[in-house]
């Protein structure tokens, strides 16, 4: 597991910190400040942040659904964050997302270190269950849900929030 985190570290170390990696390349590290950086970069518009795991069968089952959603909504800001704590093979993140049609979506992976602290920075009441999704409206209002996404509902949320921020 330590070895795995070292591998993650060495992969992410070569990536530029400021610009998030696209899924096709391999993830950028998700650190305590990352969520705010993403929010700042997309201020004013709706933002969907989806947390998933290679070791989470429910996440893997709906990943291609996220690919289809991203294709159907090219103007939507969707960000993917891999939250495998241990035991996953980080080198599989890029290829897995490519296969799901998510190559052009910004991709992050849980930074090394204190998982509780990084998770607390996302939300104090997120218990680490996966999949987990945060919907951030242009006015900063956050809705979060655990479990599989209802993509039709997600589409109408997006349409409503897009309209609101125009």
């Amino acid at each position: 597991m330590r070895l795995a985190s070292i591998i993650v570290a060495s992969i992410v170390a070569v990536l530029p910190l400021a610009a998030p990696a696209l899924s096709g390349e391999g993830p950028s590290p998700f650190e305590a400040a990352t969520l705010n950086e993403i929010r700042d970069a997309h201020k004013g518009g709706p933002l969907i942040i989806h947390f998933w795991g290679l070791t989470c069968s429910n996440c893997m089952a709906e990943l291609s659904g996220w690919g289809a959603f991203a294709r159907a909504h090219p103007d939507a800001t969707v960000v993917l964050v891999n939250w495998d704590q241990r035991g996953a093979r980080p080198e599989q993140i890029g290829p897995t997302l490519r296969k799901a049609g998510l190559s052009s979506v910004p991709s992050y992976a849980l930074g090394k270190g204190f998982e509780e602290k990084l998770r607390f920075a996302v939300s104090p009441d997120w218990m680490g269950e996966l999949p987990y999704t945060r919907l951030i409206a242009g006015d900063g209002t956050v809705t979060a849900f655990s479990g599989a996404a209802d993509f039709a509902e997600l589409g109408s949320w997006l349409a409503k929030k897009n309209q609101a921020s125009r």
């Binding site: 989470c56 269950e129 479990g147």
Partner: peptide, 8 residues
């Protein structure tokens, strides 16, 4: 009623 892995 949730299709999520709580890992707990």
């Amino acid at each position: 009623k949730i299709d999520a892995c709580p890992h707990q």
